[in-house]
Nucleic acid binder design. Sequence first.
DNA 1: AAATTTTTGAGGTACGCACCTCAAAACCTC
DNA 2: GAGGTTTTGAGGTGCGTACCTCAAAAATTT
Lengths: 360, 360
Amino acid sequence: MMRPTVNDIAREAGVSLATVDRVLNDRPGVRAKTVQAVTDAIRRIGYVRDLAAANLARSRNYRIACLLPDTPSQFLATLEQALHEAAAAAVVSRTEVDILRFPAEDPHALVAILARLQAQSISGVALMAPETPHLRDAIRSLRQAGVAVVALVSDLPNTERDHFIGIDNVAAGRTAGVLMGRFLSGNPGQVMVVAQSLLSRDALERRRGFDAVVQAEFPQLDVLQTLEAHGSPELLRRVVFEMTRHAPRLRGVYVLGSGHRVLGAALSDLGLARRVVVIAHELTPYTRATVADGTIDALVTQNTGHLARSALRVLRAKIDRVPIDEGQEQIRIDIVLRENMPALADAPAHGQPAAVVEAA
Amino acid sequence: MMRPTVNDIAREAGVSLATVDRVLNDRPGVRAKTVQAVTDAIRRIGYVRDLAAANLARSRNYRIACLLPDTPSQFLATLEQALHEAAAAAVVSRTEVDILRFPAEDPHALVAILARLQAQSISGVALMAPETPHLRDAIRSLRQAGVAVVALVSDLPNTERDHFIGIDNVAAGRTAGVLMGRFLSGNPGQVMVVAQSLLSRDALERRRGFDAVVQAEFPQLDVLQTLEAHGSPELLRRVVFEMTRHAPRLRGVYVLGSGHRVLGAALSDLGLARRVVVIAHELTPYTRATVADGTIDALVTQNTGHLARSALRVLRAKIDRVPIDEGQEQIRIDIVLRENMPALADAPAHGQPAAVVEAA
DNA sequence: AAATTTTTGAGGTACGCACCTCAAAACCTC
DNA sequence: GAGGTTTTGAGGTGCGTACCTCAAAAATTT
């Protein structure tokens, strides 16, 4: 009935508490035979260490840093907001979270930040950044120093990170492609593709998935060259107008990122709003409103709340060297239509906390 | 830097530890004025109770029961499996979970089980059951005895439950309706609707949402009367054949439940497989395979892993009288296509646990 | 002002674990 | 078997909280 404790192990194994402790915490000076006796006893009585008590005794604190690029983007803003909320909830489990933006255009800045974090005794880092050789080295160094590192949203496939938290962007692009094809169901036409920039791997992968599906399953569709806005609304407006002139049978628009006010305005001005199928990514205040009013037909998203909580949970698991629950940490590729758009969960009140808040 | 403790409260408020303790744990014998002084101090120094230490001191254990009907259904089997996995993970936080099936056709059996649970000192119950007056009374009694109760999957809107964990089935039906309409994009035709039974509120609500959307947005579609299988595969096959004869322009099939082998076979035999749009609910081994092979075009689902974990988390929060994270507990209406179908997370190995498993 | 009641303080024990010290025991080596 | 080395045991302290007791202090009543 009662959960077995370290004392039960000692009794069962016929050794002292000190020896059990040495085994449990990997301290030296125990004969292999004795270690075996203890681990056997642990298995026999089904001992499960109480991490809460262990952390209490250790008075362990988790220090975690989350690093996002300082690119202006509604998705990043939403993600940062979600991280802040997850961080607030994590205070409760002795976890202190710093959320930092680093200059996206300066690869050395990020490396410098990582070095600084390593100097301070940080225990885990969640990171969204493009992979570079410098970064790869910095992360290897961090991990050798015992810091857990997870890649967030953008994977670092050639880097020894502990885990990747995000979706398969090729699959996300495929999903967008199927939606586009099916919503246009068989009718021929042209599809415009819009992005901030094709330099990011995520956008490239989505485009790749989208093209693959359209080519294989909806060959009657003509997917046009990607328009890049490069952060300039005027440029975006101009290229959209330009391309529309050359695409008389434009029937769909695929937005590789989270969309833009200007794009919606341009479509309106061209008399195309709600007449072409628009598919975009990410649920942000803007896309939320735009799905609600019917300008965007479908969103392919990843839940930012889930991303944020998962990042913190996985980091803690890695720091504690505990297995993670794969099912819980798998980020799903969500399809959001007007009909299944999740209600906006009201943000937890900042400022005055309740008289007594509980912590786990 | 360090988190404030009860001792800090005592110092800050200028009272003894015993008084702080009395205030924190609602023990009597403290003047209102003193209570105020203590709560002020708590707020000033930003004290947050360490629930881990508190539970340790209390040596509190959570006993939770999950009750599902014994109806044979792949969805229920999947949900039960998810509950077992969540239960295994919860051992770690001193939570013991019993998962029971109750006879669905006998309303008294469930009430009897609840009474028995109440007699044993259970601290929370998650329940999936149709609402009846007897059940309503049983739940009121449970809650008055201090037991937390959440409704799972099926809400009990007229019962004083602590929380509902599941989706809005009308919205799920609307989502299915929009997918059907858009996948058929404007072309007229007939849509067949199939269910196990229309007695369940969930099926009714889905049908209602489906009809509302189709009527409003896709009036060219003719949604036929619901076919009920009543658990009999032969009956299902017969009515499907029958209705197909009277529906020469059948273009879609909406399955209110999680689908059935027999339905797929019938469609194949009629030469309709992959020629009509099939939309169903719930991700089960069967629907998963059927989406993969293209027989089902889209699923509208709720993630069973999320349901299970959410149920346990919410119950613990209610037992501890701690606020819940609405964002985390909101169950989303997932749309699953072949392209975004989540990989099957391999079930955690049962049997031999690792030598030392950690607990939080 | 005395008697009574209420409120407060001081102190202890326990929860399950980590981490420390010191001495005793067991194991080697020659 | 004396010397050394390695392994083990006994015991303690602390983490932050809950819960208990008993006496002292303050407030209230008479």
